[in-house]
């Protein structure tokens, strides 16, 4: 699990072009979309949906669940663990 979280952080930095971030700067429970966290926006949410499908083969069927799944690296990793093929 901790390996997956580190991998996720690296993929988020690369995919979302988070130039000012290192993997070590992101805590597992940092909010992804709030200013006190990574301050991502709706385009980033789309990027994460694409990343989940491309990298882990997981399709987000119910967009309403997106808010809970994308709260933090921890919630994303939990979702991937439960659903990856």
């Amino acid at each position: 699990m901790s390996e997956l979280k580190e991998e996720l952080k690296a993929k988020l930095i690369e995919q979302l072009n988070l130039e000012d971030f290192e993997v070590s700067d992101i805590e597992d429970n940092d909010p992804l979309f709030a200013d006190e966290g990574l301050a991502l926006d709706s385009i980033d949410a789309l990027e994460i949906i694409v990343l989940l499908e491309k990298e882990y083969g997981i399709k987000l069927d119910d967009p309403k669940k997106g808010k809970d799944i994308m709260q933090s690296v921890q919630t994303l990793a939990d979702f991937i663990e439960k659903n990856r093929k």
């Binding site: 995919q15 385009i43 789309l46 990027e47 694409v50 499908e53 491309k54």
Partner: peptide
């Protein structure tokens, strides 16, 4: 590369 699936939204926009 993705066979017309999953294009990156930022590049498209």
């Amino acid at each position: 590369e993705e066979k017309e699936e999953l294009p990156n939204p930022t590049h498209f926009i």
